[in-house]
């Protein structure tokens, strides 16, 4: 990624709102996505992230706001408005210089892999030779060359996902939208495909926007993440900032693990990440005292959950090695003021 590309905005979502009857799906959403960025829309189901993605692709019509492709840079994508601004909402889905990879992959069952991938290029009216060349190229990039003549039903989940990806990137879109790209895969393949997606994104140099409800997935792949909740953007930041400086209680709770403590600091919520919490048998000098209620050993590290009298939330501490305390033991809890995160107490 070059400095130039990181500074050039590619997509601007401004003041977009959408309601279905009384249900507000998007509430004044503002997002700017940079060229060549791997951007994630993260949130629990029903938070509006899929509605936003489908609005960008053209399958939902927002009630208000604008979605614009900014012409900066020399995108290879075809379509109207090359070089200038493109008002996406004025175009039907088949005229937008963006492509969507569907959650179900939506591979055409009556066509083989090669035909599936060629479909989008045929619609552009390209010559046979050019289509064949570009399809072969993308087959190599995605490692599907020996599956080219097979129909989707004969492929594994991971292979289908590659075909869906190949079918979208062969169009060389300005922006590739991916709707829960890994949710249909089993755990092991998912980990492989995370790395694969990241590699492909670098290789083809296309801006990726991924929708996911899995915070680990978003954290490990994305350059920047927009956390959404109830149709609103809660925070847009890189993974480290989201974790260490969450904007509000929702983000703090949704990203990573940690104990949200009320009543320690007046009118504020105190967030303690497990790695910031120290527990010891030493009671003197500890900020809180409690009783160990649970320990978990994960091999390399372990967590210890402590109940502090008259506090609803357990305080969880993580540390390397085996658990140091037994269930029922009294311990002192302490932390560095710098490691604790203070959040506004929401009504």
């Amino acid at each position: 990624m070059t400095l130039d590309s990181t500074n050039a905005p590619l997509l601007r979502v401004s003041s977009v709102s959408k309601a279905y009857g009384d249900v507000v799906a998007l509430d004044d959403v503002n997002i700017e996505i940079q060229q060549n960025e791997f951007f994630a829309l993260l949130g629990p189901s029903g938070c509006g992230k899929t509605t936003l993605l489908r609005s960008i692709a053209g399958f939902e019509d927002p009630d208000a706001g604008a979605i614009t492709i900014l012409g900066a840079g020399s995108g290879t994508g075809s379509g109207p408005g090359e070089g200038g601004q493109i008002d996406l909402l004025s175009l039907p889905p088949n005229k937008r210089p963006v492509n969507l990879m569907f959650q179900s992959y939506a591979l055409f069952p009556h066509m083989n892999v090669r035909k599936n991938i060629a479909y989008g290029l045929e619609r552009e009216g390209l010559g046979k030779d050019e289509i064949a060349e570009r399809v072969n190229e993308v087959l190599i990039t995605t490692g599907l060359t020996d599956k080219a003549d097979v129909r989707p039903a004969q492929l594994s989940g991971g292979q289908r996902q590659r075909v869906a990806l190949a079918r979208a990137i062969v169009k060389r879109p300005r922006l590739l939208l991916l709707d829960e790209p890994l949710s249909a895969l089993d755990r092991k393949v998912r980990a492989e495909m995370q790395i694969e997606l990241k590699r492909l994104q670098h290789e083809v140099g296309i801006t990726f926007v991924v929708v996911t409800h899995d915070q680990e997935e978003a954290m490990s792949m994305a350059d920047r993440i927009a956390v959404m909740h109830e149709g609103r953007v809660q925070q847009i930041a890189d993974p480290v900032t989201l974790y260490s400086q969450p904007a509000n209680v929702f983000v703090a709770d949704f990203i990573g693990t940690g104990s949200l403590l009320h009543g320690i600091v007046a009118n504020a919520v105190l967030l303690l990440r497990p790695e910031a919490v120290h527990i010891s048998a030493e009671m003197a000098g500890a900020q809180l005292h409690g009783e160990v209620v649970e320990t978990h050993f994960f091999g390399g590290s372990s967590t210890t959950s402590v109940r502090v009298a008259e506090m609803e939330t357990l305080i969880v501490a993580s540390h390397p090695g085996a658990p140091k305390f037994a269930v029922g033991e009294r311990v002192g809890i302490s932390w560095n003021a710098d490691d604790a995160i203070l959040l506004e107490d929401q009504p």
Binding site: A57, L100, L107, F108, Y119, R123
Partner: peptide, 24 residues
């Protein structure tokens, strides 16, 4: 989503019906 995928890949309504809806 097959039909949406077809639209997304650049096909109009008629082409989508002919190439995707009918064959499936």
């Amino acid at each position: 989503s097959l039909e949406e995928a077809s639209r997304d890949l650049g096909a109009g309504v008629v082409t989508t019906f002919r190439k995707i809806t009918l064959p499936s």
